Amino acid sequence: MSESEQLMVVDSTGQPLYPATRKKIHQEGLWHETFHCFVINHEEGHVILQQRAKQKKDFPGLIDITAAGHLLAGETPRDGIRELEEEIGLVRQFEQLFPLGVFLEELILGDLKDRERVHLFLTDESMPLERYVLQTEEVSRLIALPFSEFARLTDETAETFQTADQEIIHRDQFVPHPSAYFRRVNEGIQAYRVQQT
C-alpha cells in the first residue's frame, strides 16, 4: 500500500473522523482500522505465520500474522478479506472467517506510531504450506507454528519457539505485538477448537 493512500482516521471506538494519508497517520499516531487474519490448520494443530519480505518498509524479514492490511477510507472489515488472496493466494468468503472481535493495538517504535483498531479473524485451512501462492513483494515464506508454541508467545519470558519443521525461532524474529494481542488470538484458537469438537 502506498504511503499516500487515504485511510480513515477514527477514534478508539471506531467512530470515523476524517481521511488522511497512511504516512500522516503513522507519523502522528492516529487511530485507524486494519484487518488481521490468522490461518490455522486445525487438523495438524498449528498456526500458519508469514515472514515479511525483506523490502517491506516496516518490520522487514520479521514473522507476523498470516495475512493483514489496512482498510482504506470507506471500507469495512469485509473488504479486508482481499489480503488473504493477495498475500498468500487463499480465497475465502467473509462468512468463512471466525471473528475474534476488535483489538486496540499500539506500537510506538522510533518514528513509527501505529495505533490500530484491529478487526481480528481466524480461518481454518488444511492445505500444505507449499501449495500457497505467495505475493513475493510482501511475503518471503510461511511457517507452521504448533498451537502449543504459539500459546507460549503470551509468556514474555519465553525466548525461543520451535516450528512444526523443528526450526528454532527467537522472539526478536517476531513483529513485536503485545502479549495481550497473542492472548486474544490464542483464546480465539481455543474457542474455535472447542466449537469443532
Rank of each mutant, 00 (worst) to 15 (best):
M1P: 05
E86P: 01
Q135N: 13
R117I: 08
L100T: 02
R117M: 15
I88E: 00
G14L: 01
G61V: 07
S4V: 10
E95D: 14
G45I: 12
L104W: 02
I88A: 00
V39L: 15
E187T: 09
G188V: 06
E105S: 08
H170A: 06
T197K: 15
E130G: 09
E44S: 11
H32E: 09
D58N: 12
A53W: 07
I88R: 00
F147T: 06
G69K: 03
G110F: 13
A20F: 02
V9H: 03
R171A: 10
V185I: 15
T154E: 10
S12P: 00
Y192E: 06
E159P: 03
F147R: 07
I25V: 08
Q50E: 13
N41G: 07
V39R: 03
E137Q: 10
K57V: 05
H170P: 01
T197N: 15
L49W: 07
Q15C: 08
A73Q: 07
I168Y: 13
L142A: 04
L153H: 03
V10A: 01
H32N: 14
E3H: 14
D155A: 10
I143G: 02
L129S: 01
E159L: 10
A68P: 00
P77I: 05
I88T: 02
L109P: 04
G45Y: 12
L122Q: 03
E156Y: 09
E95V: 08
M8S: 02
V47M: 14
M127R: 15
L90A: 02
K23R: 12
P176M: 09
R115K: 15
E137W: 08
I143Q: 03
L112R: 09
D64T: 10
Q190F: 08
V39A: 12
L120I: 07
P77W: 01
P146F: 07
I63D: 02
K57H: 07
H177G: 05
C37R: 00
D114T: 04
E105D: 06
V139N: 00
L142G: 05
T76E: 13
F161H: 04
I63W: 04
D155G: 04
S4K: 15
S12W: 11
H70E: 05
N186I: 06
G101K: 08
F161I: 03
V133H: 02
I40F: 14
R141W: 10
R152D: 07
